[in-house]
Design a binder for these strands. Structure first.
Length: 481
RNA sequence: GGCCCCGUCGUCUAGAGGCCUAGGACGCCGCCCUCUCAAGGCGGUAGCGUGGGUUCAAAUCCCAUCGGGGCUACCA
């Protein structure tokens, strides 16, 4: 059997991390088994679906590198892969179901249904609607003949039960007594999610449905529908949901959930994939870091965890740092140049870029998030007149500061050659001469050239800054003491 | 309320009766390194929800209980 899986988001919101994880697992499973990964747009909710959301989903799926073989925007033999383009097909299936007695036109009103459910609830039983509120057939025909509208409901066979083996959760059983005769066609003739999704899965030959656990209790509906269509149900795998730190389903109130927010915050797609994969699956051999290809190689759906996973920003951040350190310098420069230019407030000249490139090895291992590079590299390209207040009072307004600054000026003025090693030796000599500790004697210099108590390593920074700039900055700071 | 799913360190997980005085990773703490901050090295902290069984032996099997989550729309 050739594996065919699909990721079928509804464009009713931006691509969020939970959906991205579902997409990732589908992708890993497809690639691992040499199957086909399909992207579909489940946009049957016309009121909430927008082109903007659709575009966002495509953009971030691409950003993550989760390329799909077939489907929305990539072509394939099943049309547009956009459900809103297939209403005729869904209607055809629904009408066929009615003809064969698997579905019926329903006239039950919302009020009637509410009463029915409340009564069931009060009795402490299952609230599934079983069609008992429908008027006799003649009345329905008359109603329809008069041109009135009605919804179409699927007739759940009762008594009965649906059982299936979920790849991640094992054997699952649902008594039909608690499965509603659910609506498949709305009164305006458009399909509901259950119908459209199931018809597509059948039509597109989907072999494995890998989706969120929130759809677990809808699965009997999908299996029943599939069987009524005369098709073989897919194999299902329901992934546990992502949780916030409070144990509730991950949502906006826990912070950013949109993938776009993570890119903007400076996360790398490789880190996102690696982290998301770990939320519910372990690579094996006590390993934590693995590339997409390595994960494809080792992915196994049946070892995916049943537990809901809490999304932990701290670990993601750490992992992002790992991937940043792993970037090669050129890659790092192109990823951070815009950030540095933003921090500096202007475009970097050719010479500026060369200086930045020399600083790269120093800042690369100090960043967990890309934007941090802006504040770390900024000092190279701007005049320092906005000394950090705390830094100034803590390291400049002490007796050691003027001594260190004057001493530095003296040994650096004619230093040859202007290299990290020579600067190191010269400044250490100066410290010894004045009986200053490295901490006390070097911090004033750092503040003078960077305006901050935190900067890339001092001697290297001075070398890259250049003699003229270094001396000028030290003099400026000294004059303010 | 009903139905369904889930329950190992704070978090993600390994563990499929003896290999477990429970392993790894993040976090946190300490030490080392050190010009700041990181990175790195070393060490530490912390967990089988609870109660009953079964067994020579249970994190692993059974039952109950408690806790958490999902669904319960003409949303998906």
């Amino acid at each position: 059997m050739t594996v065919r899986v699909r990721f079928a988001p509804s464009p009713t919101g931006y691509l969020h991390v939970g959906a991205a994880r579902t997409a990732l697992y589908n992708y890993l499973f497809a690639r691992h088994s040499g199957g086909t990964f399909i992207l579909r747009s489940d946009d049957t909710d016309r009121a909430r679906s927008t082109d903007e959301f659709q575009a966002d989903i495509l953009e971030y799926l691409r950003w993550l590198g989760l390329e799909w073989d077939e489907g929305f925007d990539a072509g394939g033999r099943h049309g547009s892969y956009r459900q809103s383009d297939r209403y005729d097909r869904y209607r055809e299936v629904a009408h066929g179901l009615v003809r064969r007695g698997h579905a019926y036109y329903s006239l039950a009103t919302g009020e009637q249904l509410d009463a029915f459910k409340q009564a069931a609830r009060a009795a402490g039983t299952s609230p599934a609607y079983d069609g008992s509120l429908e008027p006799p057939y003649e009345e329905i025909s008359k109603w329809l003949a008069a041109g009135e509208t009605a919804v179409v409901r699927f007739k759940v066979p009762r008594p009965g039960e649906t059982t299936f083996t979920d790849v991640v959760r094992g054997d699952i059983r649902f008594d039909h007594a608690q499965v509603d005769d659910f609506v498949i066609l709305r009164s305006d003739g458009t399909p509901t999610y259950h119908l459209a999704s199931t018809v597509d899965d059948v039509d597109y030959g989907i072999t494995h449905v890998i989706r969120g656990e929130d759809l677990l209790s809808s699965t009997p509906k999908h299996i029943l529908l599939t069987q009524a269509m005369g098709a073989e149900p897919a194999i299902y795998a329901h992934l546990s949901l992502l949780m916030g730190p409070d144990g509730k389903k991950l949502s906006k109130r826990h912070g950013d959930t949109a993938m776009s927010a993570y890119r903007e915050a400076g996360y790398l797609p490789e880190a996102m994939n690696n982290y998301l994969a770990l939320l519910g699956w372990n690579i094996g051999d006590d390993e934590t870091i693995a590339s997409l290809d390595e994960m494809v190689e080792r992915f196994d759906l049946s070892t995916v965890s049943k537990n809901p996973a809490v999304f932990d920003h701290k670990k993601l951040e750490w992992m992002n740092g790992v991937y940043i350190r792993d970037m090669d310098d050129d890659e790092f420069v192109s990823a951070t140049l815009p950030i540095v230019e933003e921090a500096v407030g202007r475009a970097l000249s050719e010479g500026d870029r060369e200086r930045f490139a020399r600083l790269v090895p120093l800042v690369k291992e100090r960043a967990k998030l890309l934007p941090e590079v802006g504040s770390q590299a900024r000092f190279l390209f701007v005049e320092i007149d906005d000394y950090d207040e705390a830094a100034w009072s803590k390291v400049m307004e002490v007796d050691a500061a003027p001594v260190a600054l004057d001493g530095a000026l003296a040994v650096l003025e004619d230093l040859e050659p202007w290299t990290t090693e020579a600067i190191d030796a010269a400044l250490r000599g100066m410290l010894e001469e004045h009986g200053l500790s490295a901490r006390k004697g070097l911090q004033p210099i750092r503040v003078a050239i960077s305006g901050s108590m935190v900067s890339p390593p001092l001697f290297e920074s001075l070398e890259i800054l250049g003699r003229a700039e270094t001396l000028e900055r030290i003099r400026n700071a000294r004059a303010l003491l």
